[in-house]
Each structure stands twice: as C-alpha cells, then as structure tokens.
Amino acid sequence: MTERISRDDVAHVAWLARLSLRADELERFTLQLGDVLDHAADVAALDLEGVPPTSHPYPVGNVLRADVPDGALDRAEVLAQAPETEEGQFRVPPVRGEAP
C-alpha cells in the first residue's frame, strides 16, 4: 500500500493539472484527497492478479469512418468565441519552451 498523499504530492499534481493553490487550499485539499484515497485503499489493497482491466463497459470494436472531408467550421464563428485573436489565429501570451 502507498502512503497517505502528502502536501508535496498535491502541489505536484496541481502543477500537472495547471491549477494553483493557496496555502490554506493546499492544506484542505491534501486532507480531503487523503480521505478519498483512504476510502479507495480497499481497491488498492485487492489482489487482482490475472484479472483483465475493463476500460469500455460495452464491447464495440473497429469503428471506422470513411475518409471523406466534411463538417468544416466557419473560421469567423470559431474565432468569435476566442478570448483573443490576430490575423485569423488564436493569440496567446508568449509560449516559453517547446511542447514536451
């Protein structure tokens, strides 16, 4: 079994999820997530050797669409929803660093 989730764990997870937490929130969320994970300890403790995982409840397979262009969006309609645009593109603050 794993140890109870720490404040550092929660801070790291918050960064991965692009959230920032005040000190009091970090404290509170650490306790609350710990409670939920304690409840999940019964699952973490189960010996499930040899049991296959189920990611889809209903077995459907090989769903394929024909390679036909359709369903294009109107650029103006899409850009109208954007917080900031420039020359037909989405404008964002400077991106520091490349995609990981």
């Binding site: 917080p83 989405f90 603050p93 991106v95 520091r96």
Partner: peptide, 19 residues
C-alpha cells in the same frame, strides 16, 4: 485552458495564463 473559448485570465506567459 483559456486559449480557444470561454474564460481567460491574462498572465505573462501561456502556461501562467493556463493556470
């Protein structure tokens, strides 16, 4: 993430804006 639609809270970099 504030890039394409919905809320955006401005910040100095794209990552900070996401956060």
């Amino acid at each position: 993430d504030g890039v394409r639609y919905g809320l955006r809270v401005p910040a100095a970099t794209a990552a900070d804006m996401n956060v």
